[in-house]
């Protein structure tokens, strides 16, 4: 029966793929297919069809390697797992309907074929989901490392004055890393005033504020002073609405004003000089 199925698929490949693409395009709420260039879509569809027949015809090893390639690809293309599952189901449905129409499947062998189809589709679905989620997990952990590398370095701008720009969402793990970088930087650069720039932080909730306050406290302990700069209007609004107390903090809206204040604290200021 496997051979029959595989032969049918190979003989009718073009038709199956075009039916399948039609079905996938009609899936609502999925943009994966719409945004794909036609050429790429055809190629991906063909790879998908090969994968689907691979476990009927090829060795287990060949199938595994196709599966891994394909899962990596669809994760990169941004296909959702729902979409991938539907793709597998639809492919099976089309082949089944086609074989029924051509009379390969008839009322006599219907039950046997249904069972065979099940044996064909289920392992593909299971292993695809498994590979998909593994690939996904790996992508996430790589991104996490990338995010950590991006986190927070202390930049000296003047003698005794340094800036730390914070970018992105701050969770507990990142907050720890930021705190360590911040304090090591203060000691290394002998900074007396640190400007924490939160222009790039999308949301300041109670948790983020708590981390910032802790960091400022720790900076005070090592003997320097922290200033919070880059407070956008909507951030000021949420801070006050949530009742977060930043009164012990010097805060300014822009980095520029923060730098002026920092220079004032260290008994300096910027003066314009006449042209010579």
């Amino acid at each position: 029966m496997n051979k029959q199925m595989a032969r049918y698929i190979q003989e009718n490949m073009t038709e199956i793929i075009s039916n399948w693409q039609e079905m996938m395009k009609n899936e609502k709420g999925e943009r994966s297919f719409e945004v794909m260039p036609a050429e790429l879509m055809d190629q991906t569809s063909r790879e998908f069809a090969e994968l689907m027949t691979s476990n009927l015809l090829e060795s287990h090893q060949a199938y595994e390697s196709r599966l891994n390639d394909f899962a990596e690809k669809v994760v990169r293309y941004g296909w959702s797992i729902t979409f991938v599952t539907k793709a597998i189901n639809h492919f099976g449905e089309i082949v089944f309907a086609g074989m029924e129409r051509d009379g390969v499947i008839n009322s006599d062998n219907l039950r046997a074929f249904a069972e065979e189809f099940n044996k064909w589709i289920t392992p593909i679905r299971d292993s695809t989901i498994d590979t998909y989620s593994k690939t996904w997990e790996r992508t996430v952990s790589l991104q996490k490392i990338a995010l950590q590398e991006l986190s927070a370095s202390l930049i000296p701008v003047f003698d005794k004055v340094s800036v730390m720009p914070l970018v992105g969402t701050i969770d507990t793990e990142r907050a720890r890393l930021i705190m360590e970088n911040l304090l090591e930087g203060v000691v290394k650069h002998r900074a007396e005033v640190i400007l924490l720039d939160i222009t790039g932080v999308p949301v300041v909730d109670t948790m983020v504020a708590h981390h910032i306050i802790q960091a400022a406290d720790a900076v005070r302990l090592v003997g320097a002073k922290c200033m919070l700069v880059g407070i956008r209007p909507e951030i000021a609004q949420t801070i006050v609405t949530l009742g977060i107390n930043l009164n012990e903090f010097t805060t300014t809206s822009t980095l520029q004003r923060g730098v002026e204040q920092a220079l004032a604290w260290t008994n300096r200021k910027i003066v314009e000089v006449d042209e010579v």
Binding site: M179, E180, L183, E184, V186, V187, Q214, D217, A218, V219, L221, V222, G223
Partner: peptide
């Protein structure tokens, strides 16, 4: 108080000693 090390400052804050 001078020369508090970063590691010391972080532990103090996490302990809740400000």
């Amino acid at each position: 108080i001078t020369g508090i090390q970063p590691a010391v400052a972080i532990t103090l804050i996490e302990l809740g000693i400000r």
